[in-house]
Design a protein around this nucleic acid. Sequence first.
DNA 1: ACGATCGTCAACCATTTGGTTGAATATGCT
DNA 2: AGCATATTCAACCAAATGGTTGACGATCGT
Lengths: 116, 116
Amino acid sequence: MSDPLDDVFAALADPTRRTILAMLLEDDMAVTDVAEPFEMSLAAISKHLAILTRAGLISQEKRGRVKWCKLEPDALRGASVWMQGFGQFEPVNLDAFERFLESEFNTAPGDHSPEA
Amino acid sequence: MSDPLDDVFAALADPTRRTILAMLLEDDMAVTDVAEPFEMSLAAISKHLAILTRAGLISQEKRGRVKWCKLEPDALRGASVWMQGFGQFEPVNLDAFERFLESEFNTAPGDHSPEA
DNA sequence: ACGATCGTCAACCATTTGGTTGAATATGCT
DNA sequence: AGCATATTCAACCAAATGGTTGACGATCGT
């Protein structure tokens, strides 16, 4: 009954969560490591990660006692498409959009070289 | 001290507000007319519009006793760019993106034909 | 000047959010 | 077995959110 965009945008509305996503852009991380740079409890970060998971923006896989967090960038697609409905642009042709991105950046899928 | 993205994404997280934005895509509207299709008080809509205004997503101009609401799609740019930092796409060349959109849809700026 | 319309304000309310702490659970190490 | 580490759970809290209603100030039409 509730639009997934609700969860995605709500998840993105918090700066801590956006920072977490940016961190995960570089590499998958364990919950404890995600929490390390923040001045807030591990439990708080755990909640943030749960929210990101519910929004589909990350996935969490438990391996041993460590739970690994992985960015799921595809979850941003819906939101991105929605937003592109504004501006002067018409409802967007995603296939063409992807072709455009490919030709622009010549990037193989999943091949993002971390800059740090 | 607080990131404008906080306000933009928070504004977008509510389905009522997203619907309002979609309505304004077709045309500028008076507050009362924005409120009409919703089953909630005018005051509630007025608050939603205030939130959209604070996020920069719309502007409001009072002409006579009527306050006109106008979509400000540029406010989505920052959020859009932020999001495009994810996925497999690298930090995006917006100019190229716009050229792409132009060539795809061949649409004069502001010329959006409403489908309803 | 009067009444109707447009929109906001103020007070209130229930629910959600973002954080805390301490206990609990699950796994790994020796 | 026993202890340390990784993570969540539960209870709690303050503040923010999304809604209501009723009163209010502006402006329009007659």
